[in-house]
Every structure is written in C-alpha cells, then in structure tokens.
C-alpha cells in the first residue's frame, strides 16, 4: 500500500512536533524515520497509525483520505517500544487478539485463528511458546510476540516505534535481521522509527531524516550518507569532522585548513569531512599525529591541526602506518554548507 503524507502539521501546546511534512511511501518498501529525540519522528508514525490526529494536512492510504479515521479502522500493525503486550493473556491469545475482536463474518473460525497463530509463531521463531505469559519471556521474545501480534491482522502497513530501543546490543542485532527477513517474507509496507543511524542504514530501503519537525532529506542509505543535502544530515548520518569557517573563491578556509568548496555561496559556512576522506597529500595542510588506535579492519588516527583543531582520520591499517609525526593531508571530499 502507498502512503502519502501531505503538509501535515501537529503542535503539542506551543511546541511544533510536525511542521508541514510531506512524504510518499511506496508499496512494499521498508522505510526508516531517523532523527534525534524530539524531531517529530514518533509523532509522524503515530499520525500514520491514527493514534494522533494532525492539526492540518492529510494522510492518504492508496489515495484515500484517512486523516481522521480511527486507529481501529485503519488496519495498521503497530509495534510499541515497550512492547505493550497484554500481560494477562498468553502469547497465543495476544497474537490472536486482533482476529478475536472481529465481529460477524469477518471473524475467522477458531481453527483458522489457531492456524494463523501457529504460522506467526513459526515466522518469528517462537514455536511452542504460545502458552506462556509475557512475564515469562525475555525482552527480545516479547518484541517478537508484539511483531507477530501486529502481523496477525494482515495489516496494510506495519509501523514500528523504536522497536529495538529497549533491548541490549546483541538481541538488537539479531532482531534487526529478523525484521528484514519478515518484511521480505510478507512484503508488507513497513515504516520504523529509530534514532540509531546504523540501524536505519542497515535495515531500510529508504531513510527519511527528520529534524525539528521537518524532513531534511529522504533517500537510499547510500544517498543520505554519501550526498547529504543539508548540514544536519551530514552531521547526523555517519561520522564527520565539522569545521566552522569562511568560503571564498571556491575554497573553504578555517585557520590552516583548506577544503574544496565549489558552488557554495561566499561567506561563513560549515564544512564536514568524513574521517575516511582525509588522505596524505603534499599539497594539503599540516597536522601533527597524536595517537592511533585499531578499530576492526581500520585504524582511527587522532591528529591536531596547526591552530590546535582536533581532526579524526580513518584509514586502512597499512595506510595508517604512514601517518607519523607531522604530515600534510587533504580532503578527498568535503561537504560545505553556507551558514
């Protein structure tokens, strides 16, 4: 199902949570809403679910206006950060709930419901745990139950609010893979909210980056990482050294630093350079190497420019061996944004 968000606005008191947000979500895609806390990403997700209603703008499902339709009428699957499982029901009853509350001819037979529950338990690899209560499960297992409960109603869209936020690092990683697998198996349009860029880049087909109630950029993980459109995206996605300086004559200057800045308006600006975009270059500027430490296959080198600015460089181990004493470096690529 396609979802269109059109000029949606939402205020909580005087605080604007969403400010004229437009977003098109394609059928069957896995989209991440990425942003810092308070950026409006959860409000946007809840607006799509019908748990919040916008002050202005429209939400369309397959071209149909659902802006003020109730959550119960939207057929969305929603997974909450704190699971929101029904404590007094078994796992199987939790999963069956959405089918169980249906009325009349929409309600599947008991056998049909049991079969669906079994299938879903298998899908999230929880077979045999149907009779347990949520209190008897681990955090990761609880989130899988929440996921299959949302899938049980065969939702037209699956919405997840920081689904891995309450879990520890290892469980988080395995559940990420699981969500991707479940998405690929069911093909359901999926939107998830996260503040963890690694999670968004690894999992999503496309990433929408929110800041202060607005969408800064939307694109594939490669696009948002490699060609960030705004200073905020550049600073928020991926590692970056940031510098405040001046642009003049196609060049960015900050103290002894020189960076290419073609096509940027003259005047004060902010420049971002990814650590791996710094290379040794005799035509570059001088830095003193302070220390280096290993990070997986790469080495992170901490350097200081002549005017005392710290700079972080990332290079392969072999190359990093050449960063010794005082060296000259240049940026292969810099993202410069006029202030």
């Amino acid at each position: 199902m396609t979802i269109s968000i059109r000029s949606v606005e939402k205020k909580f008191g005087r605080y604007p949570a969403l400010n004229k947000v437009d977003l098109e979500i394609k059928d069957g895609e896995l989209l991440a809403l990425l942003g810092p806390s308070g950026s409006g990403k959860t409000t946007l997700l809840r607006t799509i679910a019908g748990l919040e209603f916008p002050d202005a703008g429209q939400v369309l499902f397959d071209g149909q206006d659902v802006t003020f339709a109730s959550a119960a009428d939207r057929r969305v699957g929603f997974v909450f950060q704190q699971y929101a499982l029904f404590k007094h029901m078994t796992v199987a009853k939790n999963i069956a709930f959405g089918l169980d509350v249906r009325k009349g001819k929409d309600k599947p037979s008991k056998a049909e419901i049991a079969r669906r529950v079994d299938d879903l338990l298998k899908l999230v690899e929880l077979d045999g745990l149907g009779k347990r209560y949520p209190s008897q499960l681990s955090g990761g297992q609880r989130q899988r139950v929440a996921l299959s409960r949302a899938l049980a109603v065969q939702p037209s869209v699956l919405l997840l609010d920081e689904p891995f936020g309450a879990l520890d690092a290892t469980v988080r990683k395995s559940l990420r893979k699981e969500l991707r697998r479940v998405h690929d198996a069911t093909g359901v349009t999926t939107i998830f909210v996260t503040h963890d860029q690694e999670e968004a880049l690894e999992l999503a087909d496309r990433v929408a980056i929110l800041n202060k109630g607005q969408i800064e950029q939307i694109g594939t993980p490669d696009q948002v990482h490699d060609t960030p459109e705004t200073a905020f995206v550049c600073g928020f996605v991926g590692e970056a050294n940031s510098f405040e300086g001046q642009v003049g004559g196609g060049q960015f200057t900050a103290g002894s630093l020189r960076l290419p800045a073609g096509g940027v308006r003259e005047g004060s600006a902010t420049a971002y350079v990814r650590p791996h975009d710094f290379v040794l270059d005799d035509g570059g500027f001088e830095v003193r190497i302070e220390r280096a430490h290993v990070q997986g296959a790469l080495t992170t080198v901490n350097a200081v420019a002549q005017d005392g600015r710290p700079i972080e460089i990332s290079a392969s181990r072999a190359e990093a061996a050449r960063f010794q004493g005082t060296v000259k470096i240049a940026a292969r690529k810099a993202h410069v944004y006029a202030a």
Binding site: L51, S70, F78, F80, Q82, A84, F86, F97, V101, R149
Partner: peptide, 14 residues
C-alpha cells in the same frame, strides 16, 4: 501504560 489501549485499538478493537 496507555500503550496497551492503543495496541488494542490498532488491532481493530473498538
């Protein structure tokens, strides 16, 4: 927590 009520609503319960 009110989120269980929201969960029930999103699952289609009136």
């Amino acid at each position: 927590a009110e989120d269980v009520e929201e969960a029930a609503a999103s699952l289609g319960a009136n």
